[in-house]
């Protein structure tokens, strides 16, 4: 298996996420996990743009399908490697993001969409707080009630 795919698999393993991509929600979780990891400094080289479900990387899509294909026949190569300690500690820091707070009534994938969207709009698109809220309100009405909690969670990890 190619090194970049091994790195991707170990990245997800480290966050205790599986690499299943059967459903749209699975693929969304994958996309947002890598985005959040990269924003925390664990750079994997994927470039993100803004799509319907928030930050999305076409290159990552290509790679996770390739990974899924590779894993279906062989996962022995993965055992030859582990993530280096810097990446591990950066990912350790963002693990709390993957638990939905009790006050938030969202599936974990939707919670991750919200966090990634806030982060993308504020850090990548460099929108001010009001414009970010307005955009989420217009494009993602189902998430709008939880913007406050999302921003607070990101701030608590110094990501915002």
């Amino acid at each position: 298996m190619e090194a970049r795919l091994i790195a991707l698999k170990l990245f997800l393993d480290e966050l205790n996420l599986d690499c299943d991509i059967s459903t749209v929600q699975d693929r969304k979780r994958f996309q947002k996990a890598v985005f959040l990891g990269q924003m925390a400094g664990a750079e994997m080289g994927y470039r993100y743009g803004w799509y319907l479900m928030g930050p999305y990387s076409p290159a990552l899509t290509r790679d996770y399908y390739e990974l899924s294909e590779a894993l279906s026949v062989d996962d022995e190569d993965v055992e030859k490697y582990s993530l280096n300690s810097s990446v591990k500690s950066l990912l350790e820091r963002i693990k709390p993001l993957f638990s939905v707070p009790p006050s938030v009534n969202l599936a974990v994938e939707d919670w991750l969409e919200l966090l990634s969207s806030i982060l993308y709009l504020e850090k990548v698109s460099e929108l001010d707080d009001d414009t970010m809220r307005e955009k989420i309100k217009t494009e993602k009405p189902a998430l709008v009630d939880h913007i406050e909690k999302g921003s607070e969670t990101l701030e608590s990890l110094n990501l915002l």
């Binding site: 090194a3 990245f11 750079e43 080289g45 470039r47 290159a59 490697y81 993530l83």
Partner: peptide, 29 residues
Amino acid sequence: KNYCARKKVLVETSSSGEGVSIGKYEYYN
């Protein structure tokens, strides 16, 4: 991309090193 993953993200399980620090090698597509 593969070289970057090896240098920046991975460390061989057989080696005792920790790998190079993050940010050492990045690539553009």
